[in-house]
């Protein structure tokens, strides 16, 4: 039993790590919020200990101490002045921290990305400096050290964009555009998810964000804006086009695949995860998704494709994986 306490603490601390932790402080805003949290926790723990100590003295202390505590000065000093000063200072500091990201609004040349919550996935559109709209889905890539400005929208119901490693939750409300700004301080991969119940498959609506060096990001965006390499799996492409997948999904540079209803699949094979952060992104996963997506993510808007046989599914999986 003696060792249970430290063990429990260890477990709690372990839960704080990981790609979706609000305590990682990997971004500008989240870093300051983390500092505020630590200062508050330590500071008020000290205040709590002080109050307990004084209370104990007032009850059990020597006669002299108890008499001294009876004076009114204590009430003015520790009862009124001390809280006003400490809490007031903390409030001002809190305001400053909350408002700090507003300064990002003046940042020159932010990376502009539109993120639209749809049931149950994320439509991600990069707005390039030369005015192009590059559509992708279910994953964000951002450059390290540069301000990222997200325009958050919803296509159906209220969602909430929550990327704890970098910033707080921001709701996505139909008919409105909310703006979220952050700076990723270091390269790495973090996870976010929808934080507002949006229907049956709400829990299966997550995403990955990869922060990468500026130059690598620019190269990546240029590649993302173009078509995928010519496919080595023409049979899979035929299944894709002849079965009507292109009516809802776009693959840049492929005539017949220009649908805008579902996620853009131009480079789907290069993403971290499939199905909005719920599956690995390999050939088997593509096959499993197409064959069983209504089991995996019930009531999602894609029609069931039970019409495909195993051979067609395998070809389709290979083709989709090849969309790099």
């Amino acid at each position: 039993m003696k060792r249970a306490g430290p063990l429990l603490l260890l477990l709690l601390v372990a839960a704080c790590a990981g790609p979706q932790s609000a305590l990682s402080g990997a971004g500008s805003g989240s870093g300051r919020a983390l500092l505020l949290t630590i200062v508050m926790t330590v500071g008020f723990t000290a205040v709590f200990a002080l109050v307990l100590g004084l209370t104990a003295l007032a009850i059990f202390g020597p006669q002299g101490w108890r008499e001294r505590f009876g004076r009114e000065g204590w009430v003015y000093g520790l009862g009124i002045a001390f809280p006003v000063v400490v809490i007031g200072a903390l409030l001002l500091w809190g305001f400053a921290i909350l408002g700090a990201d507003e300064a990002l609004a003046d940042a020159e040349d932010p990376v502009r990305i539109e993120v639209t919550g749809e049931r149950w996935w994320w439509r991600v559109t990069y707005l390039t400096d030369d005015g192009r709209r590059v559509e992708s889905a279910n994953e964000l890539r951002v450059p390290v050290g540069r301000t990222v400005e997200l325009a958050l929208k919803s296509a159906d119901v209220i969602h909430s964009f929550w990327l704890p490693a970098y910033a707080g939750k921001t709701d996505m409300i139909p008919g409105r555009t909310n703006t979220l700004r952050f700076v990723a301080d270091e390269a790495g991969r973090v996870r976010g998810q929808c934080a507002e119940y949006c229907g049956g498959a709400h829990a299966f609506m997550a995403f990955w964000v990869e922060a990468m060096p500026e130059a690598a990001f620019e190269d990546w965006l240029e590649h993302e804006a173009g078509p995928p390499p010519e496919t080595s799996f023409p049979d899979g492409e035929t299944v894709f086009l002849s079965s009507g997948c292109g009516g809802c999904h776009a693959v840049r540079g492929t005539p017949g695949a220009s649908g805008e209803i579902g996620p853009n699949l131009s480079h789907v094979g290069s993403r971290t995860s499939l199905g909005a952060g719920i599956m690995p992104n390999d050939r088997e996963a593509f096959v499993r998704w197409v064959a069983d997506h209504q089991e995996i993510k019930p009531e999602n808007n894609m029609p069931p494709y039970d019409i495909l046989n195993d051979e067609e599914l395998a070809a389709l999986g290979a083709y989709l994986e090849g969309l790099q």
Binding site: G244, C245, G259
Partner: peptide
């Protein structure tokens, strides 16, 4: 098609090069 109504174009399944079934 009708993007807002989430209706794909008819021809994506009923046009040139569609599946034989």
């Amino acid at each position: 098609g009708d993007k807002d109504g989430m209706i794909p174009s008819c021809r994506s399944c009923h046009g040139e090069g569609a599946r034989a079934d």
